[in-house]
């Protein structure tokens, strides 16, 4: 259909011509043009009203005084206000009371998970799976006790730090400091491994004698350790620094011990409680 294109021949041209090719001068659609003008006006108004132009020192603040930092601070304050009724109840309740109240338990688990991810996961791992030297918090083996109170104390005061109330234990470096001869160390390591090997039971002999003399004060005569002293149970399947011959030998020789900060100095008591609830609920709490 000729002429139905809506662009009859009399459409004016811009007057520009290149090798016989001319350019139609079709106007922009009105709505488009006015929208464009409106955006230009909007931009100018935005410069005046909102923070816009960088200066040598700082930036233009805008008449509305808008600030993203203030917005974030306001949102944080709003969040705190929303959580306040739970946080207050947690502050007032004992750990057992929190664990028995489904509403508080649910809040504490969520808050504990969040606080754990921020403060604890760097060492203990995002799944609390631990690593060599960093205890796995999912299992049922606890150096300093797995009850709610014990976990809360460990978090609050930490391990082997400068705090007076810190959990503290230190194993002598039997080899490095010359307490035992190399042959004696090998003997006691073989004895310790036999405690948890599940075979014929603890072997008697030189290793047993040295163990009774040197190690049983903390680890107990049967090698089951002591939660009060922070001495690991040597008869179970869990080894903080590895359970093979080389690892146990290295531990008796040099003695390593991890350090944990006293989180009570950094986090509010309600957060410590939520962390204790969360860690206890990871599956190993007693």
């Amino acid at each position: 259909m000729v002429g139905s294109s809506g662009r009859p021949d009399e459409t004016p041209t811009t007057g520009h011509e290149w090798d016989g090719i001319t350019e139609f001068n079709n106007p922009l659609p009105r709505w488009w043009l006015w929208t464009f003008y409106a955006t230009v006006l909007w931009a100018v108004a935005y410069w005046i009203a909102m923070p816009a132009w960088p200066l040598v020192e700082g930036y233009t603040r805008g008449l509305l005084g808008y600030s993203q930092r203030a917005v974030v601070a306001g949102q944080v304050a709003d969040r705190d206000a929303m959580q306040a009724r739970y946080v207050e109840r947690i502050a007032a309740a004992s750990l057992e009371e929190i664990a028995a109240d489904p509403e508080l338990l649910s809040f504490a688990l969520a808050g504990g998970r969040s606080a754990y991810a921020v403060n604890c996961s760097q060492c203990h791992g995002s799944g609390a799976e631990g690593a060599v030297g960093y205890p796995n918090l999912n299992d049922d083996d606890w150096l300093w006790g797995g009850s709610l109170e014990a976990i809360a104390y460990t978090i609050r005061h930490g391990v082997r730090n400068e705090s007076d109330e810190s959990r503290y234990s230190e194993m002598p470096a039997y080899g490095r400091d010359g307490f035992l001869e190399p042959e004696q160390i090998v003997a006691v390591v073989r004895y310790v491994l036999s405690l948890s090997a599940g075979g014929d039971g603890p072997a008697a002999g030189e290793g047993a004698d040295i163990f009774a003399e040197q190690c049983s004060i903390c680890h107990g005569e049967d090698g089951r350790g002591s939660v009060d002293l922070g001495a690991p149970n040597l008869t179970d399947a869990i080894w903080l620094f590895g359970g093979d011959y080389e690892s146990v030998l290295a531990q008796v020789q040099n003695s390593r011990g991890g350090v944990m900060p006293a989180w009570g100095e950094r986090l509010p008591p309600e957060t410590i409680k939520q962390l204790a609830i969360y860690v206890h609920a990871l599956g190993g709490g007693t």
Partner: peptide, 8 residues
Amino acid sequence: NPLFVQLS
């Protein structure tokens, strides 16, 4: 995470 946990 973790896939499994070994108990004592």
